[in-house]
């Protein structure tokens, strides 16, 4: 199982990623305290980008690389994976 995120900001991407790996950090939703430890990536990360068709990626997502803060999203996602991923 793998989770793919499209969040607009590093912070919200990190929050979603933490929820599916370490359980709900707000301790509010159905996943509160449930450590799923799933692999999670954002659509602008190389793990996703480099493994799909480059033309399709460019057509569907390419422009958003200029819009989103790609570096900070990657940094946030990597940090969450290092801390919580089991698989």
């Amino acid at each position: 199982m793998l989770i793919l995120l499209g969040a607009a900001e590093a912070e919200s991407a990190g929050l979603a990623a933490e929820t599916v790996t370490n359980g709900d950090p707000t301790f509010a939703g159905p996943l509160a305290g449930v450590q799923l430890g799933l692999k999670v990536y954002h659509a602008v990360e190389p793990e996703f980008k480099d493994n799909v068709d480059a033309d399709v990626y460019d057509e569907q997502i390419g422009m958003m690389e200029m819009v989103l803060e790609v570096d900070s999203i990657i940094e946030e996602m990597s940090s969450i994976r290092e801390q919580f991923c089991k698989y």
Binding site: A8, E9, S12, M63, M64, V67
Partner: peptide
């Protein structure tokens, strides 16, 4: 966590 929506639109 929804970002700056108009700014994102202008960047697009």
């Amino acid at each position: 966590g929804a970002g700056d929506v108009p700014e994102a639109n202008y960047k697009m």
